[in-house]
C-alpha cells in the first residue's frame, strides 16, 4: 500500500556550495547597466506586443464585469496583480460568497511559472541592486519576459529592459481592462450576443498559445480527464486545481522516465 515512488532514485547529497557554481553563460556576461536607454528600448520594443495584450485586457474586463466586479475593481486587479491568465481564471471562479482560498491558490499555481522565468534572469539580474531587480520583476509577464531574455542573451546588457517593456504592458493592460469592463457593463443579456462564450473562447486561445508541441499532450490529457472526473465529485471549482496539479505530478514522475 505505502510504496514510495522515490525509492529507486538515489538522491545525490550535494552541498549548498554547488549553488554558487552556475552555468558557464554567467561568466561570459560582462556588464549590465540599469539605464534610461534600457527602459526606452524596452518600451519601444514592447509596444506592438502590448497592443495584442490589450485584446486580452478587453476580454478580461468584460468577464470581470460579468462576474459582478465594478470597473474600478477590475482595473485595480489589473494594476496590482498584472498576470493575465490567473486574473481570467480568478473572475471565472468568482462567486457569492467569494471562494477566497480557491482563487488565491489558483492564482499562485498559475503564476508559479514566473518563479522559473525570474530565475532564468539571474545571470544578468544578480548584477543589479536588489531594488532594481525585484522592482523590475513586478512588471514581468510572459510576453516581456520573452523579449527581455532575447535582448539580454544578445549581449545588450540592458538591465532595465524588463522594466521598460513591463511598464508598457502594465499601461495597456490597465487601460484595456477599463475599456472592456465599461463595455461589459453595458451589455444586457450576455447569451443573446454570444458573450457568455467569451470565456471559453479566451481559454481556447490561451491554450493555443501555451501549446508547446506533442510534449504538452500527455499533461493536458491528464488535466482534462482529471478535471472532468473531479467536477462531478468535488464542490465548487476545486476540479481546476486538482486537474492542474495532477498534470504537474504526472510530468514530474514521467520526466526523463
Amino acid at each position: 500500500m505505502s510504496s514510495d515512488p522515490n525509492t529507486d532514485e538515489s538522491v545525490p547529497a550535494e552541498s549548498s556550495e554547488v549553488a554558487s557554481e552556475r552555468s558557464p553563460i554567467e561568466t561570459q556576461i560582462e556588464s549590465v547597466t540599469f539605464s534610461r536607454d534600457g527602459v526606452r528600448t524596452g518600451i519601444l520594443t514592447c509596444i506592438p506586443i502590448a497592443i495584442g495584450v490589450g485584446g486580452y485586457g478587453v476580454a478580461f474586463g468584460v468577464l470581470a464585469r460579468q462576474s459582478g466586479l465594478s470597473v474600478a475593481e477590475a482595473a485595480f486587479m489589473s494594476a496590482v496583480v498584472l498576470a493575465g491568465a490567473s486574473q481570467i481564471v480568478a473572475v471565472e471562479l468568482w462567486a457569492d460568497p467569494i471562494p477566497v482560498a480557491a482563487i488565491v491558490f489558483a492564482t499562485f499555481a498559475i503564476n508559479l511559472r514566473y518563479s522559473l522565468m525570474g530565475a532564468a534572469l539571474r545571470p544578468w539580474f544578480r548584477k543589479l541592486t536588489s531594488r532594481q531587480a525585484y522592482g523590475s520583476l513586478f512588471f514581468m509577464a510572459d510576453e516581456n519576459w520573452a523579449l527581455t531574455m532575447r535582448d539580454l542573451k544578445s549581449g545588450s546588457g540592458r538591465g532595465a529592459f524588463l522594466l521598460g517593456s513591463g511598464l508598457v504592458l502594465w499601461l495597456f493592460w490597465v487601460v484595456s481592462t477599463i475599456l472592456g469592463a465599461t463595455v461589459g457593463g453595458a451589455i444586457g443579456d450576455p447569451q443573446q450576443y454570444g458573450f457568455d462564450f467569451i470565456l471559453a473562447a479566451v481559454f481556447v486561445a490561451l491554450a493555443v498559445e501555451l501549446w508547446e508541441g506533442t510534449s504538452t499532450l500527455v499533461p493536458w490529457l491528464v488535466a482534462l480527464g482529471t478535471a472532468i472526473a473531479a467536477a462531478n465529485v468535488l464542490p465548487g471549482q476545486w476540479y481546476v486545481i486538482v486537474g492542474g496539479l495532477a498534470a504537474a505530478l504526472v510530468e514530474v514522475i514521467r520526466h526523463d522516465g
Binding site: A85, V89, E92, A106, A109, I110, L112, R113, A200, F203, V204, L206, A207, L210, W211, E212, T216, P219, W220, V222, A223, L224, T226, A227, Y239, V240, I241, V242, G243, G244, A246, A247, A248, E251
Partner: peptide
C-alpha cells in the same frame, strides 16, 4: 506544464 494544464482543466 501548470499554466496550460490549468487552462485545460477549466476549459
Amino acid at each position: 506544464v501548470l499554466p496550460g494544464a490549468i487552462v485545460i482543466a477549466l476549459l
